[in-house]
């Protein structure tokens, strides 16, 4: 399975994270997104006319929407990451998968503006980002009242993976996460999952790493 990938892209990170959590090994094909704009070049446009990454290629299947890629990886290797057959849970997964597109547009747009100088109305992007974070916070508060620790169930699903990266990287776009205690606790839960992997700016819970010993420090 080949992933056209860019290390700093939160959408590509979703795919790498889902693959790691469900035990799928990916053949990573790095894309020179910045400054090369390789995703807008002829080779990648032939695969994805929309000119976006990630692109997942598996045989003659080509997927270019990150939520679809998450569902594909989970269906192949980690069905427990999909919704169960409970209608409410299935609907919640779809709700947050769709919602994740708004995080990409708002927080992701603000991040591209601040990091890669992409033109845009930064105030509007940040305002929309805050509105999205407030919705997510409210959703998590309500889930907690239902005895559920994640967005769609009491276990993490593709919905959590779809929403997590752009939220975790919101400060890159100048949007603070200080005001969202439920999001903070949810992020800790995700970052302490067994097979969690990092990307630049998103780290595993540091306290879960072994404390360096004096002997190791001397080496």
């Amino acid at each position: 399975m080949k992933l056209y990938d860019y290390i700093l892209s939160p959408s590509c990170y979703k795919v790498r994270l889902m693959a790691a959590l469900s035990g799928v090994s990916l053949d990573i094909r790095p894309v020179d997104f910045h400054p090369g704009l390789e995703h807008r070049g002829p080779e990648l446009l032939a695969l994805n006319p929309a000119g976006s990454i990630p692109i997942l290629q598996d045989g003659d299947l080509i997927l270019t929407e990150s939520s679809a890629i998450l569902v594909y990886l989970a269906a192949k290797a980690g069905p427990e990451w999909l919704a169960s057959d409970k209608p409410e849970e299935a609907a919640r997964v779809q709700q947050w998968l769709s919602f994740s597109g708004r995080l990409t547009a708002s927080l992701g747009g603000a991040r591209l503006h601040e990091m890669l100088l992409r033109p845009g109305d930064i105030d509007a992007l940040q305002r929309q980002g805050v509105a999205a974070l407030r919705e997510l916070e409210l959703g998590l508060v309500e889930q907690a009242e239902r005895g559920m620790r994640f967005l769609a169930a009491d276990r993490p699903t593709v919905a959590d993976i779809a929403c997590f990266p752009y939220v975790a990287l919101a400060p890159d776009g100048g949007v603070s996460l200080d005001a969202y205690p439920a999001i903070r606790l949810w992020s800790r839960r995700l970052r302490s999952l067994d097979r969690f992997i990092e990307m630049p700016g998103v780290h595993r819970l540091h306290e879960l790493k072994a404390e360096p010993t004096v002997e190791e420090s001397k080496v």
């Binding site: 407030r134 409210l138 508060v141 309500e142 009242e145 239902r146 005895g147």
Partner: peptide, 13 residues
């Protein structure tokens, strides 16, 4: 109840 608390949370919003 949890339902009261969810309603109160929305009222606060």
């Amino acid at each position: 109840s949890p339902a009261d608390r969810i309603a109160a949370s929305r009222e606060a919003e």
